[in-house]
Every structure is written in C-alpha cells, then in structure tokens.
Simulated assay, not measured.
Amino acid sequence: MAIFGLWIINKAGGLVYQRNFAEGLAQLTSNEYLVLAGTLHGIHAITSRLSPTESSSGANVIEGETFKMTIFLTVTGTKFVLLTSLNETIAEHILQRIYEAYSDAVMKNPFHTPEMPIRSEKFESRVGAIIGSGQT
C-alpha cells in the first residue's frame, strides 16, 4: 500500500493544497497540477449529472492502471483527493481524518482566507501524521 499525494481543490476548481508523499507518480510543475485540478473539478461536475435515477455527488473513485484517486466532497464543495496505489483500502478513512484536520487547523484560523492556498504548519504536521499512520 502506498499513498502518493493529496490535493485539495476549492469549490471553484482551484488547487489550494498539493503535497506528494511517495515516489511513483510523474513529477509535475505547479502549473500542471493547477491544470489537472481544474480538469478533475470539471470531470467531477460532469459525473454528478450522469446518474440516471437520482442525484449524485459525482465520482468517488477513479482508477488508472497504476494508481487510484479517491475523492471526498464536502458540503461546501471543497474536494479532497487522495492519490494511492490500487490496493489501498483505507483511503476514505484517511480523507475523513484529513478533512477533520482541515476543519480544525485551517478553517478555525482567523488569518486564513477561504478559497485561497493553504499555508498552515499545523495542518501540514497533522497531515503528515495522518499519512504516516495510514501507511503502516
């Protein structure tokens, strides 16, 4: 099991947080990450409209040949995306814990502006601890 990276995408489709944890995915520039986040935001919006029987929150998991993207959509429209190996089974649990850390360390910070890039050492350390405990 491996966790490769974490993205947080705001409700407008902008990448507000990106961090890599392990080797295995292509090394991209910051601009390429921004483009990918915007593209994923659009794909997620499209998939939320495709359900033929009832409303849908969109894609929850997207699998490639060598990795899996697990998407957690919050009620405010923020997306938490975890890039993992195909055999990762606790991605949803890890995303829930990261969302709790985000709510605690970022959203309660009076100096953080919503929808802007996340710059919080407290959040960084909590994410590192969550990912570190999730990979064992």
Rank of each mutant, 00 (worst) to 15 (best):
V61D: 03
F67C: 09
R97Q: 15
E65S: 09
F111K: 06
I62T: 08
A101V: 01
F72P: 00
S56Y: 10
G58C: 07
I62F: 13
T89D: 06
Q96H: 05
S103I: 02
T74E: 01
K108C: 08
L86I: 13
I98P: 13
E92F: 13
N109D: 15
G77L: 05
E88D: 09
Y99L: 06
Y102P: 04
K79C: 09
M116A: 12
M69W: 10
S85K: 11
T74L: 07
M116S: 12
M116H: 10
V81S: 04
M107N: 07
E88M: 15
F111V: 03
F111I: 02
S56D: 15
L82D: 05
V75R: 12
L83E: 03
T84E: 04
V61Q: 06
R97S: 15
G64E: 08
T78N: 12
G64P: 04
T84M: 04
A101Q: 03
N60T: 12
S85T: 13
G64F: 15
L95N: 00
D104V: 09
G58P: 08
M69D: 01
L83K: 04
M107V: 11
E88K: 14
V106G: 05
E63M: 12
I98Q: 13
I98M: 14
A101P: 00
F67T: 05
N60D: 09
T66M: 03
A59M: 14
I62Y: 12
L82H: 05
G58N: 07
D104M: 12
M107W: 00
H93C: 03
I71F: 03
E65V: 06
T76A: 15
Q96Y: 03
H112L: 01
I94C: 13
A101I: 01
K68P: 11
R97H: 11
I71W: 01
G77N: 08
G64H: 07
T113M: 10
Q96W: 00
Y102G: 01
M116C: 05
H93M: 06
T84K: 05
V106A: 06
F72S: 08
Q96A: 06
K68A: 13
E115Q: 07
I98S: 11
F80M: 05
A91T: 07
G58I: 04
V81D: 02
T78Y: 12
A59S: 12
H112M: 02
A101W: 02
E92W: 05
T113A: 07
F80W: 04
V81M: 07
E92N: 14
L73Q: 10
E100S: 11
M116L: 08
K68H: 08
T70N: 09
P114L: 08
L95E: 00
M107C: 13
E100P: 00
K68W: 07
F111E: 06
L73W: 00
T113G: 00
I62M: 15
I71N: 01
N87C: 03
I98C: 12
S56R: 07
F80E: 04
L95D: 01
F111N: 08
L82T: 08
M69S: 02
T74D: 02
S55M: 09
P114I: 09
L95M: 03
V61C: 07
L95G: 02
H93Y: 04
A91D: 12
N87S: 13
V75G: 09
H112K: 00
S57C: 04
I94K: 03
L86Y: 03
M116Q: 14
L73N: 09
I71P: 01
K68I: 10
F72N: 10
K68Y: 09
T89Y: 02
E92A: 15
E88T: 15
E92L: 09
K79Y: 08
L86F: 05
